[in-house]
Design a protein around this nucleic acid. Structure first.
Length: 418
RNA sequence: GUGGGUGUAGCUCAGCAGGUUAGAGCACCGGGUUGUGGCCCCGGAGGUCGAGGGUUCGAUUCCCUUCACUCACCCCA
């Protein structure tokens, strides 16, 4: 039995790599315009970092992390998300003392042991954006705006922005009590999952897709209506700033972010085109995390983009090869091959994109291969040419040919193809 | 972890109400052009019919088991 890749952990073959590179380069270009700097963080961290930041009772920490002891017995985890690591790095290097370092982005693989399905894999890739030490609502609006600009630049169709506020500890505590009271009253009408959630994480009930629960949830108290004065003001300000940028949004009081560290503004970019995995990007404010991880008490906000989901939404032609000239050198006979081999290297060093056939195939076979490789030009080197001291240059699109003297050949090719 | 769907050539899929050499399209290789791609024509190569077991004179086809892939639940990007 041949070895296969691990379930949910996929190869990215050359025919789609162009899309990945497009996504990465657009991210770099847009984010740097907004003042973000790239940071590269490890894929492996101490398990504690994630269990403390994401929340002990979340599904991620409870059953989805790839955790194992290293050779010293230290428990390590393949990162299930990036925010915890970026915060850790910020604290570790005392970056709050460097005012030029506030806005970061990073991209790379994450790992969660879930059942794979469309748009959801065990190794998946995210682009993450994090802003530290800024709590003005304007920053929330700008972060959201940048996410939408990015998606628009990639021409991702039918994106909708959902917006919510998770309040702060001050408003969440009393709210939890009134929600608990309400759920207590209707508890035998809830589905079995929600019966369990009622005690472990009541906010999750808002996410339930069972019809009967949905009806109960409609009448349940909503956190958004129980925000404290400060949070209410803050949320209104975020909305005002979004309005000033002409950003359309839908208030979604039932959108509950799964990670424990979120507070106040949360948001998701949703598409109807991906089936069940409809969130292309999502994030929010997480003001308490830095302090919780032992750093200074600084606010933070950010978002994550799911790259696989983005790639699924990309137009078929996105990221296709640019149509620059590509030369194929076809040699006929040993003598010509000996001359052609160093010539090919020299042309590449001169800046041209050049391929040759290393086997002694018929000219027909070589031409066919040149066509498959989408060469724009073929340089034919054969006995006839060598005898005359020339090479034949064929333009594949125009189907025209000309002879070029071997003397000064490189210069002639550069002039024509560069 | 739970449920549904699907496993036949590199890819997309036919087929078989059990029967002898398992098919198509695309892709690949070669020829038609002693040295010229795409289109066309001709030919070739490529399959333990996912794996194991059972029923049968005979199984790709029926039954059981198992594995893989996939979609959905859960959760999330």
């Amino acid at each position: 039995m041949a070895i296969r890749a691990i379930k949910g952990i996929n190869d990215i073959l050359p025919d789609v790599v162009g899309k990945w590179q497009l996504v990465e380069s657009v991210a770099r270009r847009i984010f740097s315009k907004f003042g973000y700097q790239e940071i590269r963080i490890p894929i492996l961290e101490k398990t504690e970092l994630f269990s403390r930041s994401i929340g002990e009772s979340t599904d991620i920490v409870e059953k989805e992390m790839y955790t194992f002891p290293d050779r010293n017995g230290q428990l390590l985890t393949l990162r299930p998300e990036a925010t915890a690591s970026v915060v850790r790095a910020f604290i570790q290097h005392k970056l709050h003392l460097q005012p030029a370092m506030r806005k970061f982005y990073t991209m790379g693989p994450m790992f969660r042991h879930e059942r794979p399905q469309k748009g959801r894999y065990r190794q998946f890739h995210q682009i993450n954006v994090e802003v530290f030490a800024m709590d003005d609502p304007m920053v929330d609006a700008e972060v959201i705006y940048m996410l939408l600009v990015f998606l628009e630049e990639l021409k991702i169709p039918r994106i909708k922005l959902h917006l919510n506020s998770m309040g702060c500890p001050d408003c969440r505590l009393p709210f939890r009590q009134s929600l608990a009271d309400y759920l207590e009253g209707v508890r035998d009408k809830l589905c079995s999952d929600c019966q369990r959630r009622r005690l472990s994480n009541p906010l999750r009930i808002f996410d339930c897709k069972v019809d009967s629960c949905g009806k109960l949830v409609d009448k349940a108290p909503v956190l958004l209506n129980h925000l404290c004065r400060e949070c209410e003001k803050n949320f209104q300000s975020v909305k005002d700033h979004l309005d000033s940028l002409a950003v359309a949004y839908t208030i979604d009081p039932f959108m509950v972010r799964g990670l424990d560290y979120y507070n106040r503004t949360t948001f998701e970019a949703i598409t109807p085109l991906l089936g069940a995995q409809d969130a292309v990007g999502g994030g929010g404010r997480y003001d308490g995390l830095m302090k919780m991880l032992g750093g200074p008490d600084l606010p933070a906000t950010g978002f994550a983009i799911g790259m696989e989901r983005l790639i699924l939404l990309l137009d078929d032609k996105a990221g296709a090869l640019k149509d620059s000239n590509r030369l194929f050198v076809a040699c006929l006979g040993e003598e010509a091959k000996k001359k052609g081999f160093p010539l090919v290297q020299q042309l590449r060093l001169s800046g041209l994109t050049v391929e040759m056939d290393y086997e002694s195939k018929s000219l027909k076979a070589q031409m066919r291969r040149a066509d498959k490789l989408e060469a724009t030009h073929v340089l034919i080197l054969g006995d006839d040419e060598l005898a005359k001291g020339v090479a034949t240059m064929r333009n594949m699109e125009a189907s025209t040919q000309e002879e070029i003297p071997l003397e000064g050949l490189v210069e002639q090719l550069l002039r024509r193809l560069q």
